[in-house]
């Protein structure tokens, strides 16, 4: 394999690269172009250059409000995932091996179950005819069903459930790279359990928390099925808005503009934060 080191890697990776060129770069470029095309109710897509769609997105507050909601939800979901995922990863790491593998099954298993089924579960729990609401009403604790369906809270809770495993995984991976004796070392130098956690453990898993946050944020901001089911037609996020423009209104160019904006914003945020994380921690962690 080492006879032709110049050509070999290109021959090996070439087919895949061609597939990606044809099936990722070209379609994405076409989508960006599409966002600059004209569209009319009766004339359909007109391949003429125009900034109409972009102007409409800027001019109409509706789009701003949808994107604002999308990112608000994504940030809150990320915070919720940090709040519950970080402690859970730490606890998981301290479980005995037997309990740990059982718990991992319970926590990571849902990742393999279709998002549709998991979102359905939340609708069944908290829908107006849902089990929790019916139960609480029968017990006389509440008069009307708790609002959950078609609310931001509902979408946030559902997405937190869907995405929390990613946070646990990211933090857990960071914890596993930790030398277990480091905790003992801090103890031997007189640090209390809390000080050890704050001064020794936490700073070492911050990169894991940050990269987990980037993942959760990106997936929450581009989530589709959960907001569509829990948020319904009224509570739109960027992904469901693009879907509507494409498959209901059939205004493809406008849908393409929404999609392009979402893509650009997310890529900028992901690449930017990864750069920051790398620069900040390059010294300490290779």
């Amino acid at each position: 394999m080492s006879e032709r080191p110049k050509a070999a890697p290109y021959l090996l990776a070439g087919p895949t690269a061609l597939v990606f060129l044809g099936l990722v770069l070209i379609p994405l470029a076409m989508t960006v172009l599409l966002s600059f095309y004209d569209w009319g109710q009766y004339k359909g897509i007109v391949p003429e250059w125009t900034l109409k769609n972009w102007r409409e997105m800027v001019a109409d507050d509706y789009f701003a409000s949808v994107f604002l909601r999308t990112f608000r939800i994504a940030i809150l979901v990320t915070l919720a995932c940090v709040a519950i995922g970080v402690p859970e990863a730490y606890i998981l790491n301290r479980l005995s091996p037997g309990w740990r593998s059982v718990s991992l099954l319970a926590i990571l298993g849902p990742l393999l179950v279709s998002v549709v089924a998991r979102t359905l579960g939340w609708a069944l729990l908290f829908g107006s005819t849902g089990v929790v609401n019916q139960g609480l009403m029968k017990l006389g604790l509440i008069a009307a069903p708790l609002p959950f369906m078609f609310t931001e809270t509902g979408v946030i809770v559902t997405l937190t459930h869907v995405l929390a495993p990613f946070m646990v995984l990211a933090v857990w991976a960071a914890l596993q790279r930790l030398d277990p004796q480091v905790e003992n070392a801090a103890g031997s130098l007189g640090a209390s359990a809390f000080t050890t956690w704050r001064r020794v453990i936490l700073p070492q898993i911050v990169p894991g928390v940050l990269s987990g946050s980037v993942i959760v944020f990106a997936l929450a901001a581009s989530a589709f099925a959960s907001p569509a089911i829990i948020g319904g037609r009224r509570l739109k996020v960027a992904a469901t808005l693009a879907y509507d423009e494409f498959l209901n209104t059939l205004n493809w160019p406008l849908g393409a503009a929404v999609a392009t904006l979402l893509l650009v914003a997310l890529v900028a945020i992901i690449v930017g934060s990864n750069r920051l994380i790398e620069r900040r921690y390059a010294q300490v962690f290779e």
């Binding site: 379609p27 990106a218 581009s222 979402l262 997310l266």
Partner: peptide, 29 residues
């Protein structure tokens, strides 16, 4: 080899692109 990093990023890029965007891109294409 030259382009190695870029190829790796390209092959992993579908993770970064929202699936709605991919869906729209494929539908159009």
């Amino acid at each position: 080899f030259p382009g190695r990093e870029a190829l790796t990023a390209l092959f992993l890029s579908p993770l970064m692109v929202p699936h709605v965007v991919l869906g729209i891109a494929f539908l159009r294409f």
